[in-house]
Simulated scan of single mutants.
Amino acid sequence: MHRDHPLMPFFLTLAGVGMLSLMDAFMKGASLAVGAYSAAWLRSALGLALVAPVWLGMGGKWPHRPALRLHLLRGTVSAFMALSFFYALTKLPIAEAIAISFIAPLIALYLAAVLLGERIKREAIFASILGFAGTLVIIGGKLGREQATQEMWWGLAALLFSALLYAWNFILIRQQSQLAGPAEVATFHSGVSAVLLGLAAPWLLVLPEAEAAMHIAASALLTVCAAAALAWAYARAEAQALVPIEYSGFLWAALFGWLFFREAVTVPTIAGTVLIVIGCWIAARAPTEQSTI
């Protein structure tokens, strides 16, 4: 019987995170060319075209009402999460955007308390303080070296809004996983986003030229491939072992930001990222039997 190499889940997680960071770089270029809305909608539509045949080929059937409700809710949340994040990428360097988005797991701790009734540990509160401090370091460093502009403030606001929705997305994924398989989740994730964003297409859609169209197509393919790689990896290794690799996204983002847009990574961005990652690490390592507040 063939057995997978024990390091394969780690390599695939690293590759999956890298593919998502490369997708962000392609989407930044596409968003600058045709706008965040057009880039986001076309990516969702192409993603649906790629994954729906797979789901149907696996015998996919229309979901029952509880699962459908979650599909609709997560698709809506994800649509605006992606739209606001891609808009933020047009205003901020990729590495800074990725670094600040790392606060989403910490926000998710509090949303889990509100939406799922989970109790917040003392460690989680300390982790949240570190994450918030890291965010302030990154933003403060940016304000210290650049003149604050309305465009920058809009980018930061969109990024924080996206992080909030990303945190809610964590909760919805946890609920979805109990009711539907990965192929169904991926199909409705792209499908609901495509339909919802498509409502504004008659007024807002800008058709891309060849280069931007190739970037959007590559983004859709990278999104599907990354989802498959991460799903395979997380099915074969413990989440606590793989989650730290997710933070390699900052390194990938710094690399692709420099290669595509010549974006420099600053010391405050690195320092703030370290604080946020430490906070996420503390929250993830907190024992379940620890006293709570």
Rank of each mutant, 00 (worst) to 15 (best):
M8Q: 11
L205P: 14
A40N: 15
L46H: 08
F256R: 08
A231R: 10
A186Y: 11
V265H: 01
E289A: 05
Q147A: 13
K61R: 14
I245Y: 15
Y37V: 01
A82W: 09
I129T: 12
A49I: 10
L72D: 11
R74F: 09
E118F: 01
L116Y: 07
C280F: 07
F86P: 04
I138C: 13
F26W: 12
G140W: 00
P63E: 02
T13S: 14
G140S: 04
N169M: 08
C280H: 07
L164D: 03
A104W: 04
K61T: 09
A286L: 03
A233H: 12
A180F: 00
T13V: 14
F10A: 15
A233M: 11
L196A: 13
S84N: 03
F26R: 06
F261Y: 09
A284R: 14
A226K: 07
V77P: 04
L242R: 04
T149S: 15
L204S: 15
T223E: 01
L68P: 10
A228W: 12
A39C: 06
L109F: 04
A36W: 08
Y234P: 09
A39Q: 05
L242F: 12
C280D: 15
A15S: 15
Q290C: 04
L72S: 07
I129E: 09
A82T: 14
W55K: 02
W281Q: 12
L197N: 14
L255R: 09
C225M: 08
R65G: 05
L48T: 11
S38C: 09
W41R: 10
L207H: 14
E146K: 13
V17G: 11
A218E: 02
A148E: 07
S177V: 08
T223F: 10
K142W: 11
E211N: 05
W154Q: 14
H189M: 08
L7R: 14
E96H: 11
A217Q: 06
F161D: 00
F260M: 06
E211F: 10
T269E: 11
A228N: 07
P105K: 01
V17K: 01
R285N: 03
Q150F: 14
A283M: 01
L179M: 00
G47K: 01
L242V: 03
E146F: 13
A212F: 05
R285I: 00
M19A: 12
Y234E: 06
A40R: 06
A231V: 06
A133D: 02
A108K: 10
G57V: 00
F170T: 04
I293W: 09
A186K: 04
A127C: 05
S128E: 06
P93C: 09
R3M: 08
I94S: 03
A183F: 10
A30Y: 07
L242T: 07
A218Q: 00
A124W: 03
E118R: 00
L50E: 14
V17I: 13
